[in-house]
Computed example of a mutant assay.
Amino acid sequence: MDQIVRLFRRGRPNIFEEQLEIIDFLNNFCDNICINTVYHKHDYEDIANIFKIISQFRGVKKWQVFELDYYQIIRHKKEKR
């Protein structure tokens, strides 16, 4: 796994809670919040739980879910060489 991805995932152990705090703050002022979620095979089973949580925020109008493609990351690194 790429060092940057490792840092992103493990370098901020409370990242989910941090994002919920930001959404909660924005929810007080905005009624058109869009959330982007990137998941991979280890997160797949949590998607339903994430949906339940973000559905509680009235300001969230759009939720986009993207799959993290490790092969695309590897191809991109090879192309940069």
Results as ranks from 00 to 15, higher is better:
residue 73 I to G: 00
residue 43 D to K: 10
residue 55 S to N: 02
residue 48 A to F: 02
residue 62 K to G: 01
residue 74 I to C: 10
residue 35 I to E: 04
residue 67 E to W: 15
residue 17 E to C: 03
residue 28 N to P: 02
residue 60 V to E: 00
residue 34 C to F: 04
residue 24 D to R: 12
residue 70 Y to I: 13
residue 26 L to Y: 06
residue 37 T to Q: 07
residue 79 E to L: 08
residue 56 Q to L: 05
residue 49 N to W: 07
residue 35 I to T: 00
residue 10 R to P: 01
residue 38 V to N: 07
residue 58 R to T: 05
residue 36 N to M: 12
residue 68 L to T: 10
residue 45 E to T: 05
residue 29 F to Q: 10
residue 58 R to Y: 00
residue 51 F to W: 09
residue 14 N to S: 08
residue 31 D to G: 00
residue 73 I to Q: 14
residue 70 Y to K: 11
residue 78 K to D: 11
residue 57 F to G: 03
residue 8 F to E: 04
residue 50 I to N: 00
residue 53 I to S: 08
residue 77 K to H: 08
residue 80 K to L: 14
residue 64 Q to I: 13
residue 17 E to H: 07
residue 79 E to N: 15
residue 60 V to G: 08
residue 55 S to Q: 06
residue 29 F to L: 05
residue 27 N to C: 12
residue 24 D to F: 02
residue 64 Q to D: 11
residue 43 D to C: 05
residue 36 N to T: 14
residue 45 E to H: 06
residue 27 N to R: 09
residue 43 D to S: 10
residue 2 D to V: 03
residue 49 N to R: 12
residue 56 Q to I: 01
residue 59 G to T: 02
residue 4 I to A: 15
residue 46 D to E: 03
residue 64 Q to G: 03
residue 6 R to G: 11
residue 44 Y to M: 04
residue 10 R to Q: 01
residue 23 I to D: 05
residue 6 R to I: 03
residue 52 K to I: 09
residue 18 E to F: 01
residue 46 D to A: 07
residue 61 K to H: 14
residue 10 R to Y: 08
residue 16 F to W: 12
residue 20 L to C: 04
residue 16 F to E: 09
residue 36 N to E: 10
residue 57 F to T: 01
residue 42 H to Y: 13
residue 72 Q to C: 09
residue 28 N to A: 11
residue 71 Y to W: 09
residue 46 D to W: 04
residue 12 R to V: 11
residue 52 K to A: 13
residue 32 N to E: 10
residue 76 H to N: 11
residue 76 H to F: 13
residue 47 I to L: 12
residue 20 L to E: 04
residue 41 K to G: 03
residue 3 Q to C: 05
residue 30 C to L: 04
residue 33 I to P: 00
residue 73 I to W: 14
residue 53 I to E: 12
residue 13 P to K: 13
residue 73 I to T: 06
residue 6 R to W: 10
residue 16 F to M: 07
residue 72 Q to N: 11
residue 57 F to N: 01
residue 64 Q to C: 07
residue 36 N to K: 12
residue 46 D to F: 09
residue 1 M to V: 15
residue 76 H to R: 08
residue 16 F to Y: 10
residue 56 Q to D: 03
residue 37 T to F: 00
residue 20 L to M: 06
residue 69 D to E: 13
residue 10 R to H: 03
residue 39 Y to K: 03
residue 64 Q to P: 01
residue 41 K to T: 14
residue 9 R to Q: 00
residue 57 F to K: 02
residue 21 E to M: 06
residue 55 S to D: 09
residue 55 S to A: 00
residue 58 R to E: 14
residue 48 A to M: 06
residue 29 F to Y: 12
residue 76 H to K: 10
residue 22 I to P: 02
residue 26 L to G: 02
residue 43 D to P: 08
residue 71 Y to C: 11
residue 40 H to Y: 15
residue 19 Q to T: 13
residue 10 R to W: 09
residue 34 C to P: 02
residue 23 I to V: 15
